[in-house]
């Protein structure tokens, strides 16, 4: 129990440093600290699949972020946006935080999953019948590739679309049609 508090406080401190520092490279490195701390928490929350995926995704994301920020000068941007808008947004964020605290009181306490409090839920069926129905001993894999495979199909579509978007944005010059009259 204490390890969750320690790791979450570590993540929050890293997030504050990542938000508030002026140097962009150290900010990116602090994002890496948040990601690896999150991966450790996933491991302690008994989710090894997520921990493995989070570590490798974090490494690739850091490579992407550092590639974007390294060897660029003029990244030191100080000052915030105009004062009035910032005050309004901070007040709104604070109100959202207070409302969220009220919502969290209605949730079950930490350590009891929701599917245990609800009788005849989907997760109970996945755990008790997933082995016979799919033959996979890793229940997470049997959920994402058999019971809820539509979700994975949509995920593949979203990934495909975002990669196409990145490729189109980064293309050096537009492809010309062959018979297009040149101006």
């Amino acid at each position: 129990m204490a390890v969750f508090y320690i790791l979450l406080l570590f993540m929050i401190i890293a997030a504050i440093i990542a938000v508030e520092t002026d140097n962009l490279l150290s900010s990116v490195i602090c994002v890496g600290a948040i990601g690896f701390g999150g991966s450790l928490i996933f491991l302690f929350l008994r989710a090894p699949d997520i921990a493995i995926t989070q570590i490798v995704v974090e490494v690739l994301g850091l490579i992407i972020l550092i590639r974007a920020t390294i060897s660029r000068d003029r990244t030191f941007i100080t000052g915030d946006r105009e004062f009035f808008g910032m005050v309004v947004s901070i007040v709104i964020i604070f109100v959202i935080f207070l409302a969220g605290m009220k919502v969290f009181e209605t949730l079950p306490t930490f350590g009891t999953p929701i599917f245990a409090t609800v009788g005849d839920s989907a997760s109970q069926a996945y755990i008790s019948e997933g082995m016979q129905k799919t033959g996979a001993t890793n229940l997470v894999t049997s959920v994402i590739l058999d019971f809820r495979a539509y979700d994975t199909l949509g995920e593949a579509t979203v990934l495909f679309t975002s990669i196409i978007g990145a490729t189109v944005i980064l293309r050096r010059k537009a492809k010309k049609l062959p018979e297009e009259p040149d101006q």
């Binding site: 590739l145 058999d146 994975t152 495909f160 490729t167």
Partner: peptide, 29 residues
């Protein structure tokens, strides 16, 4: 075992690996 799940795993692995390599290659270019 597990029928189509290993086949789907191979497909997903191929897709994710190729597309992520593609985007980093494009970014470096």
């Amino acid at each position: 075992s597990a029928g189509t799940i290993p086949l789907s795993n191979i497909a997903i692995g191929l897709k994710v690996g190729a597309s992520l390599f593609l985007v980093i290659l494009t970014l470096s270019m």
